[in-house]
Amino acid sequence: MTVENSSAKHSFALAQQRNDVSLTRYSGRFAPSPTGPLHFGSLITAVASYCDAKAHQGSWLVRIEDTDIPRIYPDSEAHILRAIDAFQFEADDTIIFQKDRLDLYESVLHQLQQDHLVYACQCTRKMLGSNHIYTGTCRELNLPFDQHAIRLKVSDQEICFDDRLQGTHCSNLQRDLGDFVLKRRDGIINYQLAVVIDDYLQGMTHVVRGADLLDNTERQIWLGSVLGYPQLEYMHLPLAMNDQGQKLSKQNLAQALDLNRASELLQHAIRALHQPEVDLDTPKNMLIQAIAQWDIQSIPHSLQLDGTYL
């Protein structure tokens, strides 16, 4: 899928800021949000993204996705950094924080505005009601951009990608979602915008993350195409569930990782991914063994993992 406009040219200017360290044949990342401490589901994602990158002789970066500043949970960023150290993951470059990069996101938004690919929207959730498909109510109103949400225009076309675990996944954004928000009316940069820009600037080639983010992918592919960015390879992992049948998440009060049990929890995560057994050792040695044995075909090709993980 190709979208030709001057925003694609803007990618060449941003390319000057791309991280040359991560421009390898394979470049992956772990990108947690500090809306709570890391839990076992986060560990599964970290292990899978790390092993997949290293098994491909690639680089692995860490990005803290903290643009939603009001939702940042106290001490959660520090817990994430302590967890990375405790599990002895070795990032191949400096960890970045999205809240330090807001000017970058605003510059891309400005370019999209100049190219008439976005518009201001005054609709609130109350106004939209239960309709989850945005019908373009504000598309032709030419509202001022200050004090309003900013939506990206989508087209009536099918977007498909081949997920390495979940198979072919398709969506027509106009029919299934409608124009979507890149910046909220309260000024918060939306996840979709920040992740697409940073994946590009950090030279990402592969994304390994939970299946709860599967439905975000077509949006990110569309935005990346509008901006002239290369399309990435995706692998969406089956989710670890609790005993209530809910995915492990901060919202469902998933238990924080006990960093004093790093080796034990790491072994548990490797088993959850259906990988060959590793010896109980230091996390570093366990990861080396897991990388040497890494086999994505053994990961369940499903949306959920069997069993419960508290």
Rank of each mutant, 00 (worst) to 15 (best):
G28V: 02
L305V: 00
F180G: 08
S27R: 13
N190I: 02
A269F: 07
G178W: 08
R101H: 03
L143H: 05
R164L: 15
N190K: 01
D52T: 12
Q114N: 14
S49L: 09
R175S: 13
G228Y: 12
D163K: 01
L14P: 14
V108M: 14
P238L: 03
A13W: 12
H10V: 01
A13M: 10
D162Y: 00
P238E: 08
A149L: 05
Q88T: 11
P238S: 03
P34C: 05
Y134S: 07
N190Q: 14
L117H: 10
T217S: 10
Q202V: 03
R219Q: 15
V154G: 07
L280D: 03
G228R: 02
R209E: 01
A86I: 11
R151F: 05
V195H: 09
L287W: 13
F161E: 02
P283F: 06
L305G: 04
K153N: 05
L253I: 02
P276F: 04
P144A: 10
M235Y: 01
I133D: 09
T24W: 07
F12E: 14
L104R: 12
N190F: 07
A240G: 06
A78Q: 13
K250V: 05
Q244E: 14
F30Q: 07
S22T: 09
E65P: 03
A292N: 11
K153Q: 15
Y105P: 13
V118R: 04
Q114W: 00
Q304P: 01
I189C: 06
H10F: 15
S7C: 15
A290D: 06
L43W: 06
Y234M: 09
Q275C: 02
F87S: 09
L173A: 11
L102E: 00
A292L: 03
T35R: 10
I296S: 00
N142E: 06
T135F: 06
H301W: 06
D103S: 15
V118P: 07
Q267E: 05
Q17C: 09
Q192M: 11
L152R: 10
N131V: 13
E264L: 14
A292E: 13
G28H: 01
A53I: 08
V108K: 09
K284L: 15
R71N: 11
G187K: 08
I69L: 13
D281A: 14
Y119M: 12
P276Y: 08
S27N: 14
G307P: 07
H116Q: 15
N260A: 14
D156L: 03
K247S: 08
E218Y: 04
P276A: 11
E233W: 00
A269I: 03
I221C: 06
R63A: 07
I133T: 15
S27T: 03
D186C: 04
V154P: 05
Y229W: 08
D163Y: 08
F40D: 02
M204S: 14
C138A: 10
A194D: 04
G129Y: 07
I96R: 02
Y229I: 12
E158G: 00
G36F: 08
